[in-house]
Every structure is written in C-alpha cells, then in structure tokens.
Amino acid sequence: MPVVQSASDTDFVFSVCLPLLQTAQNSDGGWGFHSGSPSRVEATCWALLSLIHLEPSNEQHETGFRFLRGTQLPDGSWPSSAEQSVGCWATSLACWVLESDPASREAVAAGLNWICKDLPRGPSLFQRVISSINRRNKVVAQDESLQGWGWTPDTASWVEPTAFALIALDQAPKELLPNGAGKRCQSAKALLYNRMCREGGWNCGNPMVYGVPGDPLVEPTVWALLALRNESQRPEVAKSLAWLEKSIPTTLGAGSLALAKICFETFAKEWPPNAPDLKDLYAKNEFLASIPVLAWTCLALGAKTIWPGTKAVVCTDAKN
C-alpha cells in the first residue's frame, strides 16, 4: 500500500482510518469488532471515544450513545454483546464514553454504581492463611487482599479491567460517584502497583508464577499507566514508562503501538524516533480489520485534545 505509507499521519487518519470507522457503524447505532459484524458494546465504545475526540458532535455520535443506553442492563452494567444478560468490563468503557453525553447522566450513574458494587473474586480467608503458611507452594506471589476489578463478575482482579474502571471513575463527574468509590480506587491502585512486573510494566496480572517472573506486555502496561497518570512521580510509573519506551521499537501489533503513542502523549514523553510506523503496520495486515485498532489509531495520530485527559482530583468519595 504505497499510498498509505507515503501519506502523513493526519492524511492517514482522515483519509483512511476515520472514513472506515464512520462507515462501519451499524443501523442500530453500534459498531462490531469488524465492519459488518453485529454491534458490540466494547467496539462501540472505542469507535465513539475516537469520533467524539475527532469531530464536532453529530447525529452519528447520538445514535451511538442511544445504542449504548439501549444495551444497558437493568442492574446498571453493560454486557459484551447485546444478547448477554450479565455485565462485564465494558461497563467501565460505556461510562467513560457516555460521560460526555448529557442525556446519559442517569445511565452513567447506574453504571458507576454497578462498578463500585462489582467485587472481584479471590481466595477465601482460609485459603489465604494456608497460602501464607505454605509459601513454598504458592502459585503466584502477589497480595491477594487487594481488590481491583475482574473481566466478568465473580472472577479475579486483572490489570486491564482494573485500569478501565479506574479511568471511568476518575473521569466521572464527582457528584455521580457512589459511596465507597474512593476506597475502591485506592485498593485498585495498590493492586496495580503490586502486580507490576519486576522490570517495570504489566502483563495481564501475574507478575510471578511458581517463582518465575512474567514478562510485561504493551497493552496492559499502557492501560495501567493511563490509570495511574496522575501519579507520574511514583518510581513504578517511571520504571514502567522506561520499559514501554524500550519495547516500542520491537512492537509488532498496531493496537499496542497506537495505545503506546497515546500513553506517551499523555505523559508528555517524546515518541522514540525508531518506533515502527502505524501506516507500515496497516500496509501489512490492515489492522486485521479491527474497529478498536482503527479507533486507537485515530486517537493516537489525529486527536487534537490530550487524551484521556488529566485531572487534579482523583477518585474522591462523593459523600465523604
């Protein structure tokens, strides 16, 4: 694809990625993971997040917001696909996106409430006591008392859903935060630091298994860093940014690369000159036709505003 490769980043976004994103919207207002696929909550969130940062508000955004409001479950959560009746991590993404839509205030409040009530599953007190006595047989070396968020209800805490929930709670209007949000955020941030890999960065959430250190990955590292973006003075954050910087030149996936670029801009760090070019990666595999990757690329190369935004006050309890 020589045309794509010779285009500027802005041309690439506005002549290739953005039109693909715009035309992939389904008649129900949502987006699938690929153009022509049935609408899914997560893909819709990424597409909308990108569009609302790149264009003035328009009818396409409104129908997207309506799709999201229409797929919210009675308990306030969002499922991954419309047919499912159980909420998941997509709730954080939906709240994050709908926070910019005044008509979705109630939906966001219900979603935030669900997030704060959604407790991860962990070992029982008895299992924790046995595990602390029998350290030699411990499978994972991490503080099991810390609580973040799982991908789906009644499962353990993992790095990415924890980061998504932290970002959603952080972005939310303070008056919509339910009681206990601050405490949940505190524990979740402690969990992220506890789950950091030895060399900096994060993987899905197991920094050590059977005594062997796990390798960090780009995407979880980016999400954890974005969730901790107001704590840039912490040495763990600096160490993880350094790991990310070291990893960028060998990054093979467009999704990882786009997210890393967003992360660098958020932390006002210079983009490494030897980083791969997203346009080159598009020429190889067309991003596997992924709507989320197209959306992240638009945000990475085309968004004029700082994303996901910085705030001085983070996750305070509304009624404390």
Binding site: F33, H34, A43, E160, C204, L217, V218, E219, T251, L252, G253, A254, G255, S256, L281, K284, N285, E286, F287, L288, A289, S290, V293
Partner: peptide, 29 residues
C-alpha cells in the same frame, strides 16, 4: 495478550500464509 496481531506476527505466520487479514481469524473478537 489481547493484541492478537502482535502474537501472530511474533509467530511469523504471515511469512508462511500471507497477509493475516485474509488468512487468519481472531477468534477473540
């Protein structure tokens, strides 16, 4: 790793079967 493209590129599948968008389905999505 949710970056399936990165995983499959690291495996070098494209070198053997051609561009991934035509030869490979990401079952996760």
């Amino acid at each position: 790793d949710r970056d399936t493209e990165a995983v499959v590129e690291s495996v070098r599948l494209r070198e053997y079967v051609g561009p991934l968008q035509r030869s490979f389905t990401d079952l996760n999505v």
